[in-house]
Amino acid sequence: MKVKKEVKPSSPLILPTRSKEAVIHAPGMRSGSESFTKALQRFSTSLWRNKNLTYQLYKRDLLGNYRKSVLGLLWILLAPLIGAISWSFMNSAGILSPGDVGIPYPAYVLISGAIWAIFAGTAATTGETLETNKGFISQVYFPHEILFVKQAGSALSSATITFFLNMLVALVLGVVPSWYIVFYPLLVLPLVLLGSGIGFFVSVLSAIATDIRRVATLVIGMLMFATPVVYVKTPDNPWLSWFVEHNPLTILIRFPREVILFGTFDHSSQFALTSLGVLVFFIVSLRFFFTTEPSAIERMF
């Protein structure tokens, strides 16, 4: 017979994965992270403890999605290329008036679009976390925050591959990036945090009422046109131009794009401030997730 060590019970705030510590389930215990720093601490501890599971689930999605297709992982390259071709076609047909983008338009759309995809991809993928993984959430308990990391990870990795492939295409079109491109991870981090933060809210609330995700998908789709992604000049409509100016995404996209393409650091303080705001938003949404997720889960089935 195994010898069971008597240990002091710990709260399940951080789920001990393979420890023999006692776990207590009681009302409010899982949603008990009152402070914002505790939420952040719980998130990072859980991520560290469950790194193998996070990796396995990430691999499951990546391989599972591409294995049953003839072209497989090539789709990561194909999809954005087709997008860029259609944008360039529209531009050459004179339908768009993007303003002076400074470099060949196809290269501009490719790079700008890839940066946008980091935000939109993270928000959309993390927003459907609980829904997509419903199958195992209902059957086995594990810390669900790692599902968000997995979802954000797959969105980020496919967007990153797209970004660097597009960069190669841009090179062919004669656009040489500045050496600051090595700061890519830091430059796009705020976009990832903003996307995941939105994802936390959307995922929990849409687990209760699915309308939330539909609305979120629509809003993110519209946001792309309210952010200078495929154009640079300020729109003529005063409402839209006000929005474009005050939209935090504008600076979060413009700054990395300018740093990478032109090596210029205009608006760096604005970027730093916005990033700080995004970090605060991320922690707030993380706490929201921890407090509300348990009650959302039981409404899912």
Binding site: P27, R60, G135, Q139, Y141, P294
Partner: peptide, 29 residues
């Protein structure tokens, strides 16, 4: 631990293997 409790307390001292639905995360491909 899948559902939160409304009242009371459950203490678990060990690793739980739920056979409620085995192979929860199986992927066909």
């Amino acid at each position: 631990g899948i559902y939160p409790l409304t009242e009371g307390k459950i203490t678990i001292r060990g690793q739980v293997a739920p056979l409620i639905g085995v192979g929860a995360a199986f992927h066909p491909h």
